[in-house]
């Protein structure tokens, strides 16, 4: 396993909660603190975010709506960018349609404390972005069966 792979694997479960966490990680995998810091800085491109990963439900965000839109292909990038900038939208992706039963190609997530408040946010979003002509559906989550971070250990691109 390359040094970057070892580092990626060593921190995926979480950073040590000690004053010098990068020194502690380095000790575990035989790397100096300085090397850990340099490598992590170089890995910024593969690290989407570093910091707290929240548990929505525990924080009271029990209503989680996946809103799916059937946007004409030539407009999907524009609409996606517009939605992605809104404060209430936490994720926004263009995905493949499955015709005929699944015509939707743009997916966004809206989290809220209650379903009604999520629907209110959606109403204002439709108005603000002039999307009333675009067919959409709201899929609220009923139950979360499994939630964990993906496990990464031997990704090819991390090999350097």
């Amino acid at each position: 396993m390359s040094s970057n792979q070892r580092l990626i694997e060593a921190i995926q479960g979480g950073l040590p909660l000690v004053s010098r966490p990068y020194a502690a990680i380095g000790e575990r995998i035989g790397m100096s603190e300085a090397e850990v810091i340099t490598r992590l800085s170089d890995l910024r491109g593969v690290i989407k975010r570093l910091g707290v990963v929240v548990c929505h439900r525990k924080l009271g965000y029990r209503a989680n709506a996946m809103v799916v839109w059937d946007v004409p292909d030539e407009e999907v990038a524009d609409v996606g960018q517009q939605l992605g900038q809104l404060e209430c939208v936490t994720l926004c992706y263009h995905r493949a349609r499955h015709l005929p039963d699944w015509p939707f190609n743009l997916f966004c997530m809206i989290h809220g404390k209650e379903r009604n408040r999520v629907l209110d946010k959606l109403d204002s979003l439709v108005e603000q972005c002039h999307l009333s002509h675009i067919h959409h559906e709201v899929l609220f989550s009923r139950h979360c069966f499994k939630q964990r971070g993906a496990i990464y250990s031997q990704f090819a691109a991390a090999e350097r």
């Binding site: 990626i8 921190i11 995926q12 479960g13 979480g14 950073l15 909660l17 491109g45 593969v46 690290i47 989407k48 975010r49 570093l50 910091g51 707290v52 990963v53 929240v54 548990c55 525990k58 924080l59 939630q147 971070g149 993906a150 990464y152 990704f155 090819a156 691109a157 991390a158």
Partner: peptide, 24 residues
């Protein structure tokens, strides 16, 4: 942070990776 993790408010304190950029 330790307490928030213990209480389950945080599921982790660490990185989220771009899976595709890691080659996954």
């Amino acid at each position: 942070i330790t307490q928030l993790l213990e209480q389950g408010m945080l599921s982790r304190f660490g990185p989220m990776y771009h899976a595709e950029r890691l080659g996954g």
